[in-house]
Design a protein around this nucleic acid. Sequence first.
DNA 1: CGTAAGGTTGAATTTGCTCAATCTCGGTGG
DNA 2: CCACCGAGATTGAGCAAATTCAACCTTACG
Lengths: 233, 233
Amino acid sequence: MFIGHSSGSSALLARQAAHPVLRAVVRERTLDRDQNLIEQGEAPQVAHILLSGFTCRYRTLLNGRRQITAILVPGDMCDLEAVLRGWADSGIKALTRCVFGEIPLEQLADPLRQEPDLARALLHQLLHHKAIDSERLLSLGQRSALQHLAHLFCELQERLETVGVAEEDGYKLPLTQSEIAELTGMTTIHVNRTLQALRGQNLIRWQKGRLSILDRPALERLAEFDPAYLRHL
Amino acid sequence: MFIGHSSGSSALLARQAAHPVLRAVVRERTLDRDQNLIEQGEAPQVAHILLSGFTCRYRTLLNGRRQITAILVPGDMCDLEAVLRGWADSGIKALTRCVFGEIPLEQLADPLRQEPDLARALLHQLLHHKAIDSERLLSLGQRSALQHLAHLFCELQERLETVGVAEEDGYKLPLTQSEIAELTGMTTIHVNRTLQALRGQNLIRWQKGRLSILDRPALERLAEFDPAYLRHL
DNA sequence: CGTAAGGTTGAATTTGCTCAATCTCGGTGG
DNA sequence: CCACCGAGATTGAGCAAATTCAACCTTACG
């Protein structure tokens, strides 16, 4: 993923040299937990890249059931598709206090006429999230609850390591169990019990908002996790 | 979606004027039902656009459970992501006899340096399938079995109409119930019973490989189907 | 210290799954 | 023309997974 050093105050991301997308950032914007970056159905006025914090995309059914369709971590473009499409098919809300970089639409309106680096980065981002979605389809369709959660934790470990927000053996996971539920299509209660199972097998610990992976190989084996889908050219 | 008239024998697609992607087709290739276009893990040697027939992408778990992660209909790029990424994260197989257009890698290797029309079409295709995936995540996570199947049928009606392969009230649906199962993460048996429920409510009929939608508004209401996600700029 | 949000537990119920069998129908060979 | 065959569809009974509802516990925080 393209991570660079933002000029703003919240610059946690200092892994790669300045990246084309970050160079396009003209301003920062901060949201508190549970605030919406964009409502479902809205037309984006500006594009955002997440600089720090956790964010999610979600969609709602008439009966009120909600599905979190994506978790966004620092470095991710939050609303790229919405911008390119002209309207947001999902809502986007902050799971923690978040800082976003704003990118004026003009700079992306026709990404394919831009400098190739920027365009490549956008395409890259799209591919990245497409790969994550595909893996999530597999989890939702075929993995057991246990495997599904295991896979989620492995994926986040990997993604957060990439952006330098995780340690070797875990990371801060600022989600509630009901958010995990919305993410995985399970019930909060079922999430709770499945987590207990995971703990019972000494695979993870999850205390005070920090997830610790106690036996990473075992967890990855259980999840059938293969990080390849997160690695790109 | 970009559909045009292919010069080959199998040209069913004659809706829009010749499209940049179709212009890049150098050769056709035909597969019979159940033959693989590409194996999971393989490195694509050439890109493919589906000209006629039904194809799917799928992924397998160690226990042999398979998830169909996408249905591909005429006009769809089958392996765009695999090409851009350099390896296939899913297998792709023909659900019926299929004709594909082959596009040499050189023409796509760096799509962002190509004529903008081609590049735009590729990006477009990526967005299209991303939108479909997002909807499918919602179905898998939050819709009931009944809603899920209803949604699937609505989606296909819409997509096939777009490429001129559906009539007003239905279309040929050359899938087996177990393929529907792999697509929706259900059991074949559960698919069967859910289909009976759908028939019982006089929403659909499915005979001799043709799916008829008897009450489209009611089916769309049940599924909470909103075709907006399939419409693009 | 009280409150609220999040986490945990139990029991009853529903949904979907497994296994195992039977049915249907199009195609095949005799 | 007809009996056979096999893939796909259908059925039933029992079981497992996940949900619902309702309560209770824990912890952070004002």
